[in-house]
Design a protein around this nucleic acid. Structure first.
Lengths: 239, 239
DNA sequence: CGGAACTGTGTACGATGCAAGCGGTTTTGG
DNA sequence: CCAAAACCGCTTGCATCGTACACAGTTCCG
């Protein structure tokens, strides 16, 4: 039989601080405290700076002591994600327009992801199991249930919105203005105008350079792309 | 002055095999050969199995010898990506409908990404600089130039299509049927129906379980989501 | 022919994730 | 009430990783 239970650290998040009398010394740390330390560390120095020892050192303990709370580093990343998302920051009005509700949900999630941009760098093999992640999912499902679509399509639609938000965050990271400038100059030094004329023309048009403020690139209008996705979902609603 | 040139390995990809007479022994390896070995290794055992030593061992050399061709592991990942994408596998008909051309481009890219799913796990800090990557970009720009949109919007549109393809690949990986089944059973064991009713109902409706073949989840219809994105671009074309 | 440029290699270092075991502490059961 | 069990944080140790550095051998230029 394979392991059917969630990882220990994830179960700790669900259980909360149960002060049931247990044997042995009182734990000096807690899974949420570890998650908080790891998150602030990732916020300050990036995801690569998060190691067992660095997180432990920040808390004043040794690396190995963390393993009393978190079985593996992947589990640590999971609880970090849960902490980064935090509780759902958007109200749920069951009678609201589903499109407005979904938009609010997406913008709220975007805010959390922008506050902790490293979340999009965490490699996930399966969907998250942590309380806040599930709460976000629940809020998204509730928002999209207003479409009246069958459950499977509601879930699929939520997946599309969620994917769009994450893609946008990745875009903002990868195509940051300074990195973009260095990239375009490097690109100018290698490409062959004859082989890739469209890229060449784009470079000539200074598409990737610092654009005037009235025409920024990439389009920083998150709402624009979002409306495209929501419009696509609407096509499911109105046949 | 910051470094304005592309990394050595990337320049080697652009230069091709120039047999200009150079001093010292003939190189026993080459950047493309290294890339090929690393790619097949990633295909067979996953991206985590790709290390300097493992790639070198596959080629019959030591880890350090790779550094004569690739300055850092990040550069190795870049040339791996270039090899994974390969040359553009879609024809470009300048007179074709831009929507069909963009769709073909997206489906071709999807094929390459599915052949090497680890490509979406490579963390990128800036856009790729390698020949095949640029060639794919060029083909995408050419396909979308048929929209007649200004260059900035063409580039933004391509970014949206590209993001969608990558999101879809990530989705297929993360929500694979077997991982999904384990996830849903684990989820059943932790969630509180009162706190997250929508997730609970979705679980009751067996949304995430093995769905009947006539209603698979997540919707494996890549084209469906693609049409949404292309439809959004069309809204830019037809005001 | 001698040196310059370049090759692959061996060694070494710090960092990482983690397994195993240790002494000390607290609760529990007889 | 006390031994056993459960649990804490810590030390030690190991394999692996990326990579800096020095070295011996090879090839070409002057």
């Amino acid at each position: 039989m394979s392991e059917l239970e969630a990882p220990r650290a994830v179960r700790a998040l669900w259980a909360g601080s149960s002060d049931a009398p247990r044997r042995g010394p009182k734990p000096a740390m807690s899974v949420p405290a570890i998650a908080e330390a790891a998150v602030t560390l990732a916020d300050e120095q990036g995801l690569d700076a998060v190691s067992m020892s660095s997180v432990a050192k920040r808390l004043g303990f040794t690396a190995m002591s963390l393993y009393r709370y978190v079985d593996t580093k992947d589990d640590l990343l999971q609880v970090m994600l849960d902490r980064a998302y935090g509780p759902v920051t958007v109200a749920t009005d069951p009678d609201a327009d589903w499109r407005a509700a979904a938009g609010d949900w997406a913008r709220a999630l975007l805010g959390r992801c922008q506050a902790h941009p490293w979340v999009v760098d965490v490699r996930m093999s399966s969907p998250p199991l942590t309380p806040n992640s599930v709460a976000w999912m629940d809020a998204g499902l509730r928002a999209l249930s207003g479409t009246g679509l069958p459950p499977q399509q509601v879930a699929s639609s939520l997946l599309m919105v969620d994917s769009y938000v994450r893609s946008h965050v990745r875009l903002l990271k990868e195509y940051s203005p300074d990195g973009l400038a260095a990239w375009s100059t490097r690109l100018r030094g290698v490409i062959d105008p004859g082989a890739t004329p469209a890229v060449w023309e784009a470079l000539q048009a200074e598409v990737f350079d610092d654009a005037p403020a009235d025409e920024p690139w990439p389009s920083d209008d998150f709402t624009f792309g979002l409306e495209i996705v929501l419009g696509g979902i609407q096509q499911l609603v109105d046949p």
